[in-house]
Nucleic acid binder design. Sequence first.
DNA 1: AGCGCTACTGCAAGCGCTTGCAACAGCGTA
DNA 2: TACGCTGTTGCAAGCGCTTGCAGTAGCGCT
Lengths: 328, 328
Amino acid sequence: MAGLEDVARVAGVSASTVSRAMSRPEMVAPRTLERVRAAAEKVGFRANPAARALTTGRTGFFAMLVPDLENPFYAAIIAGAQAVAEEHGRWLIIAVTEGAAEREGEVLRELRDQVDGFVLLSPVGSARDLVAAHRRKPVVVVNRRVNGLTSLTVDTPGGLARIFDRLAELGHRRVAYLAGPPGSWMDRRRRDELGEHAARLGLDLRVVGPVYPAFADGAAAATEIVESGCTAALAFNSLLLLGLMYELGRRGIKVPERLSVAAADDMAFADLPGTPVSAVRVPAGELGGRAVADLVEMAGAPGAARRPASRKLPTEVVLTGSLVPPAR
Amino acid sequence: MAGLEDVARVAGVSASTVSRAMSRPEMVAPRTLERVRAAAEKVGFRANPAARALTTGRTGFFAMLVPDLENPFYAAIIAGAQAVAEEHGRWLIIAVTEGAAEREGEVLRELRDQVDGFVLLSPVGSARDLVAAHRRKPVVVVNRRVNGLTSLTVDTPGGLARIFDRLAELGHRRVAYLAGPPGSWMDRRRRDELGEHAARLGLDLRVVGPVYPAFADGAAAATEIVESGCTAALAFNSLLLLGLMYELGRRGIKVPERLSVAAADDMAFADLPGTPVSAVRVPAGELGGRAVADLVEMAGAPGAARRPASRKLPTEVVLTGSLVPPAR
DNA sequence: AGCGCTACTGCAAGCGCTTGCAACAGCGTA
DNA sequence: TACGCTGTTGCAAGCGCTTGCAGTAGCGCT
């Protein structure tokens, strides 16, 4: 409602001075500044964001492209991102891509004039397209490494490897990995690295799945895992593990006595009373937070400081009583 | 990059005509229209959203205020909302309120000049404040009824009542309700209505909790529920129920033989293979979708059509083998 | 006292699009 | 043939804020 002009009138200065008082206070005399601020307060000044965006080209919005909102992993990342955005007075606009490269490109195109930058969660577009987008507005990629772009990944394979180490140490010889979403870049990589690590340790790795990471699918995988003769199982995420454990419980198969278990991508809600599950804790919130923090920094600097910086966040490995020596 | 002026030059018309060709094609002659469109295509015209917002006051954004992103119920609502927003070429900006009235008001104030309307999920602000917000920009309230505003609620109590009916019919006399988030408006109402309905049916209702709706908390409630002597249990949501069932399974307490179970706020991931759980299915996605659809409609009409319309969406009650006569 | 600076402030020109109003065809009608 | 419409189009004035540039006052200095 109340614009620059209104404040100017009350403070007895020009609109330019009010504008400067607001965005570059060091340019106006202390006494004037005070007067302007009082006037602004009095008339209830609120800058018109559209006008500001028109002149400066900055909107205060960041766009976050996410494959799937119902995946708790992404939800956690968004939550972290949103918290940091809020700290910086930025707003997050969320677009769902359903993991389709085409849709991703479309959103990037549509939104590039309305935001100050992009956070891309597990993007599927070609590196070429993503880098191109970065030329117009800063881009931060989460959960994938892209040459030439600031990327944030999590060392889940490293964490899982430590769990394998522990299993080997306990004497397990055959271990199941309940694999994640079909076609997932992350799952693919995880599987590869696990395979290598297992070979190194002399473990026999049985991959079950990939399956859609939901409770029911975890339960459904129980039979195959039990019959595989494995003495330990890792699940792609907690939801799968919960489902698996549920089904094992129903069949009277004791955990961890008969099957040691652990999960990656651990979510808070997977915590169990009594027997906490061993897990690779992924700092999802931090991931989102960092992404936005980086974006703020890049958006502040004029192009030059858009130096890509890949970072791999460490995971926290929680080893609990859910890992025990195999029933001999 | 390419603006009205560029198109105008190529098409040999004035910028005004181009503008009209874009937003009110019925005002320009068919032949001109065609020429303008071709030119726009050729130069790759993209309207500058900030400029448009400045002149029209419309931004194409809706804001969605949500208490908590990690709650799958809200995530599902957002997903539904986002899908419909996309259909209408609108974008959703997400703000987390943490269920704090103060924060809610702040966001409403900050965002009111940058969006065309608000969707408020389970808002906690006073009805007075919410109605005030509605005077500047259309507001749709989800999961709470507010006089004078378009509200969308779900008839969960009705669904639960039908489950109670069924339980009574099966011969149960004492039933547990594992209550939801402490302080939740929704849980409060649900409890009240359940109480009345139970009384009407002559059922003895034991409320356990309220507890935070997570897997572990469901498991933790097992003891109290078992010791209460109830022969059936309803849980505030699926996560709680899964936790409860997990713990019962671990203790060798058979479901549903010893305890009939059901949940409200059922999520897809809670589906079980084998023994599906009786549940009150909440159409979360539809809830979000409808909210946005209503908002689009309101934002289109000029104030006048902002006639509040409360709607209560029906739930789908799924009755399965998880409800059986009590062990006598 | 006079000069050169520095520190502030105001002027005015946009940013790119929308829109009321005026201008002007081309047409039907009398 | 002249007049009044209706249908199109262009003109120009903003929308509210930012910012380069120019002007002014006050200061320290010699």
